[in-house]
Write a protein that binds this DNA or RNA. Structure first.
Lengths: 162, 162
DNA sequence: TTGATTGCAAAGCATTTGCATGCTA
DNA sequence: TAGCATGCAAATGCTTTGCAATCAA
C-alpha cells in the first residue's frame, strides 16, 4: 500500500497541492476495495465509519487518484463511473456480461501493440484507452443466469490471451 | 435511406410495436446528421423545425434505433452519450483527442479477430464492443491546438490499420 | 499566514418516467 | 377498439460547485 502513497505524494508536490488526513482515509478504503467500485459506493463505505468525511471529498479524491495515476476510470455501461486500482494491477481490458453484470478481465499484448500501431499511423499520441466487450457469459448462455449483480466485481487475475 | 426503414420496420413488427409519423421524422433527421450526435443535439435539431415533437420521443427513438441495429451508442467521455449510424457504416473504433475533442475513426481487422479469440477462450458470446483510444492528435501535439470542438464530428472514412 | 481542502446543500445535466391524451393497426 | 406512442413536467441519479469554515505547510 506504500506505492500509491508515494505516487500520490509526488503528484501533489509537483502540482503544489497539499496532503490531507481525510483524503488519506479515502485512499485507504479505495485500495482495500474490490475492483470496479463506484464513487457513490466508496462514499457509503467511508461515510459509514467516518461520518465526518463528505461526499465531495470522495469525488474529489477519486478524481485526484486518476490524475495521479493511482486509479483508473472504467465505464461498464451501467450509468455510473467505476474506478479500479491502477498501479499494482497490470493493464487489462474487460468483458461485461449484459445479463448478469459480471465482468471478466483480460490482457492481450497483441491488441495493445496493434493499438499503438494504429495511433502511430496518424501521429496520434495515445495516453490511455478503454476496451470493453459486451455479451453473454458462459453461465448465462447455459441458462444458469444468476440474478443481476449490482456491483460487478472480479477478483481473479486477468485472463491472458495469446 | 431505405435500408434503415426496412430494418426498423422489421424490428417493430417482430416486437409487436407500432410505427409512428413522429418517430419517422426523428429517424430522418438522425440519418441526415453527422456522426456522433448527442440525444440533446438531435432533439434541438428536430424540435426547432417540429415543435410538436418532444424530448422524450427523441430519447425513446434513439433507444429504439440502437435496439434494432440502426444506430450505435458511442462514449466519447464528454459526459453525454453519442449516437452514430450503424447500418451503412463499416464497424470501426475511435481515437479521441483530449485537447480539441476531435475524433478519428479506424478499423483494424486483426484487433477484431483477437477480441473474438479472447471471448472464445472463456466461452463468452460477444455481442458488441467499444474501443476508444484517448490521447493527443497530430495538430494539438504541434501546438496548433484549435479551440475545443463542442460536437466532435468526423466525415472521412475510417483509417484502415494493417 | 497563505492558500489548499472540506462539508453542506444547492445546482447541473443528461436521461427516464408517470400519466392523461392522441394515434396506429 | 385495444394498446402502443407521445408531451409535459416532474423525478432520478450521478456528479459538480459556491462558499464559509478548517486545515496543512
Amino acid at each position: 500500500m506504500k506505492a500509491e502513497r508515494k505516487v500520490l505524494d509526488r503528484y501533489l508536490q509537483d502540482s503544489r497541492r497539499k496532503r490531507s488526513r481525510k483524503r488519506d482515509v479515502v485512499l485507504e478504503y479505495f485500495l482495500r476495495s474490490s475492483s470496479h467500485i463506484s464513487a457513490e459506493d466508496l462514499y457509503d463505505l467511508v461515510h459509514r465509519e467516518h461520518p465526518e468525511i463528505g461526499r465531495s471529498t470522495v469525488y474529489r479524491a477519486l478524481k485526484l487518484f486518476c490524475d495521479s495515476g493511482v486509479a483508473r476510470q472504467v465505464d461498464l455501461k451501467d450509468g455510473r463511473m467505476r474506478y479500479e486500482h491502477h498501479l499494482r494491477r497490470p493493464h487489462h481490458d474487460h468483458m461485461v456480461c449484459t445479463r448478469c453484470g459480471q465482468t471478466f478481465e483480460f490482457i492481450c499484448q497483441e491488441i495493445e501493440s496493434l493499438q499503438e500501431r494504429a495511433a502511430a499511423s496518424i501521429a496520434f499520441a495515445p495516453e490511455s484507452h478503454s476496451l470493453q466487450i459486451y455479451g453473454v457469459c458462459k453461465d448465462c448462455r447455459r441458462g444458469e443466469a444468476r440474478p443481476h449483480v449490482e456491483a460487478p466485481r472480479t477478483s481473479r487475475r486477468p485472463i491472458e490471451v495469446k
